[in-house]
Amino acid sequence: MQKHLLAAGLLTIAMPALAETPVLTVLTYDSFTTEWGPGPAIETAFEATCACDLRFVPAGDGAALLARVQLEGAASDADLVLGLDTSLTAAASATQLFAPHGKTPKTDLPVDFADPNFLPFDWGWFAFVHDKTKLPEPPKSFEALAASDVTIVIQDPRSSTPGLGLLLWVKAAYGDRAPEIWQGLADNIVTVTPGWSEAYGLFLEGEADMVLSYTTSPAYHLIAEGDDTKAAALFDEGHYMQIEVAGKLASSDQPDLADQFLDFMLTDAFQSVIPQTNWMYPVITPAAGLPEGFDAFRPAKSLLLSPAEAQAVRDAALAEWQAALAR
């Protein structure tokens, strides 16, 4: 009887302790959390160190993330947001929903990047990807592309982050000449898709010679499919970068755990998962080096507008894009 009472007493003590395993909720884009994405490996690795339950909450694609954060506002259950890029961070900071991280990490990014609210976790260069066997001599610049009869398929900047990246790429490379470049490109564009996957699918089906994607896309085909026919065309103007970042929400009820996750994000355990699950460059080169194919297409010049510049030129660049393409 005594034993039973003791056991019951221990159970009642143990139960709340079990229930109090702290939960860290990370809002991110869909493809991060899938079984073939970085989510599962990162969850296992972080939970082994944190004595917590790490939960990824998918919120649609990258472009939907910020809208989701704004919708939830200060009532959000999330502690961290992972997957915004630098074209969105200015707007994200303006919501005042994010808290400063107070860290100054050293990264291997090819450009200087520091933001009080956001830390980078991976990055890539936008590029036009093509099939070497069908297009052996790709154009070497936007101007050469516009002058050629090479066909491209791109994404809509209003619904897709690569589409927005291309808008900023042309703006960063050509400034006031951007409308002229877009007018030149108009007859090369087969169509404009709502997201990256539709565009890439059309390209693989042979609907266009090139597709707007990343310099690391050919590495996917090389590593996962043993197919070395895909290549990224290097442009003389330089290539615009997408830096993906994570930030802590001011409303988090686990701020210390959130800080711990941000530190973990820049360790090898997190960074080494990125290349072959997210197919982007890690911000700190893993101890084991980069996988095969990640060094095949390295632009000589990187372009990136600061978050404030990106925010400032965005609406005008979109209007120019619409005017040039809406013949």
């Binding site: 472009a63 809509d156 900047p157 539709e198 393409l325």
Partner: peptide, 23 residues
């Protein structure tokens, strides 16, 4: 509509709503 429309001339109400919410 967006995939086959060929460009921003083929902007529907739904896409304008996407722009309003997300952009």
């Amino acid at each position: 509509v967006l995939t086959l429309g060929g460009g921003p001339a083929a902007t529907t109400i739904e896409l304008a709503i996407y722009q309003a919410v997300r952009f």
